[in-house]
């Protein structure tokens, strides 16, 4: 088995790190660059920023956050959300991103993937596929954070995306996203088996066992983690504040009971668990 990557996924709205369920119902967690910095220092293999409202309102607002992060975080940084043109890609890379993630624009115009890969190299182009399971068991691709149906079936789309030159594919289960019920193993496996490029599983982990499931059974090459590590960091900040017993912590305290099915875990603990499960990854 090859080394797997653990990717810290951060959804961003305006200046804030947010987390939702099914990519909806967003909750503000803090400043993205603070979380990114902490994840960089604590074993993240990559950072992944997704502007979750960019393609809705057709705008790019991430550049300042990207620049501040790229200045002192020396690990790969992928940025997605509202990237529609070669110029958009150039600007995000110039701000300090290493890779860009495309979804909506790729579905609207698949040739955009080819142009982008020719211009910037396949390894710079990540394509995101947001999948929703249909009553007949098929998975269909959606855009705009699971809001808009595209009529595209995900496995054939994944193969097409690879042909067009994408270097990696992120497969998001919108059904599982933010729920803590675990990654969609069948979905991930079907994509990972269909293509020869690395596949990143995203959406759903609530406990550490979910990682081994999606890596061993789902055949993912990398895992994206959001809620579990965000909540772990927030819980840690809360206990720091309680120990110091100063300032108004009622806001943060109020969030503590609402982690739902998600058991917070830090990146170091997650990697330790992978090692114990004989899954190779960077220390």
């Amino acid at each position: 088995m090859e080394n797997v990557r653990v990717i810290a996924r951060m959804d961003i709205k305006g200046p804030n790190l947010v987390k939702g369920i099914h990519l909806e119902g967003l909750r503000v967690l803090g400043k993205p660059e603070d979380f990114a910095r902490y994840y960089y220092e604590n074993g993240a293999d990559e950072l992944f920023y997704q502007d979750v409202v960019a393609s809705l309102y057709e705008r790019n607002s991430l550049h300042d956050i990207v620049s501040r992060t790229a200045k002192d975080s020396f690990i790969p940084l992928t940025v997605g959300g509202g990237i529609r043109s070669i110029d958009d890609i150039r600007e995000v890379l110039r701000a300090g991103a290493d890779k860009v993630c495309i979804n909506t624009a790729a579905i609207r115009n698949p040739e955009f993937i080819r142009d982008a890969a020719n211009k910037f190299g396949s390894s710079t182009i990540v394509v995101a596929i947001e999948a929703i399971r249909q009553p007949d068991g098929k998975y269909m691709a959606f855009v705009d954070n699971g809001r808009e149906h595209t009529g595209v079936e995900v496995i054939s789309w994944a193969r097409r995306v690879e042909e067009l030159g994408a270097g990696e594919i992120v497969i998001t289960s919108v059904d599982r996203e933010g729920t803590g019920k675990g990654y969609d193993i069948a979905l991930t496996r079907s994509i990972a088996r269909a293509v020869g490029v690395p596949v990143i599983a995203h959406g759903g982990p609530g406990k550490k066992e979910h990682f081994t499931d999606v890596l061993l059974e789902g055949k993912a090459d990398a895992i994206a983690v959001a809620s579990m590590i965000h909540y772990d960091l927030i819980a840690q900040q809360q206990s720091d504040m309680e120990n110091r017993s100063e300032g108004n912590v009622s806001f943060l305290k109020s969030g503590r009971s609402s982690f739902g099915e998600i058991a917070p875990a830090g990146l170091i603990a997650i990697k330790q668990y992978l090692k114990e499960s004989n899954i190779p990854c960077r220390n």
Binding site: V197, P198, R282
Partner: peptide
């Protein structure tokens, strides 16, 4: 074997 190799 996934190619490109993208990993640590």
């Amino acid at each position: 074997l996934k190619v490109p190799q993208i990993e640590w």
